[in-house]
Design a protein around this nucleic acid. Structure first.
Lengths: 222, 222
DNA sequence: TCCAATTATCATGTATACGATAGGGCAGGA
DNA sequence: TCCTGCCCTATCGTATACATGATAATTGGA
């Protein structure tokens, strides 16, 4: 007998929340775009009530901004905002990695390696669609053994806020290739239990997204 | 003519959200207590709709947990959870303070000093009601000049999650007195621009709340 | 022609009404 | 006695309907 999954009896509110979150993260809705409740409720075939509740939740997550009597706008981050969030992530993730490395098992490392291999395949076949997911999985694999669920959740939330922006330039093959190299090096440092170096390097790795974004923006404006 | 305050045309949802947040933070609602929508809507004299939206927001803030068809429960943190959040705060705040100190002006320091003086008065007169507010104001004064609004907001959010727990033992005069001493030392380190020491010490200062909580819990169980 | 004030319109805010789910108690049978 | 299944009730979830605020259009006047 197979293990029974808890039947997911989703409420409309949570379903709408998930869908909207995904659509915002994917970039389907542009910065500053207004999300009209009635349009969304029509689209989903539900009333405005679940839509409104979903919007409230997404607001608290920082993905949208609700202005009274005006509506919900997709959050628009300035370059400085993005840098600030990346800085926070770099602090949290480097400390998390440092706490994780001493407790990493062979399984943990193997899992990270497997993800890395998948990444390489995707890179060679040009399949960049799942890059974001693979990237998250790799980082997650490194942090697992720290057993700090709240920190992980916070990091994911921060990641969600900046992802749309940092992804703008990631599509260039060279950028992806470099990220892959950095990941490889990161994993090697973990294997060798070089905690300090790994913590320092992941900080560099995360902040590099900010540098790439800066270069991208300058190129755009030029 | 008096300066017109921007009329705060609060919507019911935001008013209820603020009120509930305050009540949860104050400890009026106990851990794990169920918040019934109808009871709340009756109490506030509004319908359940604004109450539900407020609850959604508070859930995303981590103050409550909504279980489908069951209701909203005030979040219950384990000791480990509290420690984890304190650890995160210690990382963020020490980095923030380090970034802030080099840019602190005399005004910034004077503001912090003023708050410290207020604290001392409150301590001597035994007026502990505003301790939390004074504490927040002091820390905020130290971080101001870093000009990192997103980091500040995040720290406040983290603070909100743990405040109920760390406050359990702060009411002992000795604990408050020691916190005051630590604040004084912190400010002195800022004045002397001893960045590294200050960053290290504020980390100690924040984590001390965890140690105090641990002692309190052991005493309780004994 | 331009400005101001008023009205019209639309999206959002809120209340009420209805439907669905979960949990507990009760009755019937093993 | 214990289990099982049904029903019943409290509470939540969702839809619909109405109220209110914000913005655009329009009208009147200077």
């Amino acid at each position: 007998m197979t293990i029974m999954q808890p039947i997911k009896r989703q409420t409309l509110t949570s379903a709408v929340t998930e869908s909207l979150r995904k659509r915002i993260l994917s970039g389907e809705f542009a910065d500053g775009q207004q999300l009209r409740q009635e349009a969304l409720s029509n689209e989903y075939g539900v009333s405005r009530v679940p839509v409104r509740e979903a919007l409230r939740q997404l607001e608290a997550e920082g993905l949208i901004q609700i202005i009274d009597h005006k509506g919900a706008l997709v959050s628009k981050l300035s370059f400085e905002d993005v840098l600030e969030f990346l800085e926070i992530r770099s602090q949290l993730e480097s400390a998390l990695l440092a706490a994780s490395i001493p407790r990493q098992t062979e399984d943990d490392l193997a899992l990270a390696q497997a993800t890395l291999d998948e990444f390489e395949e995707a890179l060679q076949s040009g399949d960049v669609r799942h890059w974001g997911e693979l990237n998250s999985r790799f980082h997650l694999a490194l942090y697992r053994s720290a057993e700090r669920p709240n920190t992980l959740a916070l990091i994911e939330s921060l990641h969600n806020k900046t992802d749309r922006y940092t992804r703008m330039q990631i599509l260039f093959t060279e950028t992806m290739a470099r990220a892959h190299e950095e990941h490889s090096r990161l994993l090697r440092l973990c294997r060798e239990r070089r905690v300090e170096e790994a913590a320092e390097f992941i900080r560099f790795h995360i902040l590099s997204a900010g540098r790439a974004l800066e270069a991208y923006l300058q190129e755009q404006s030029a």
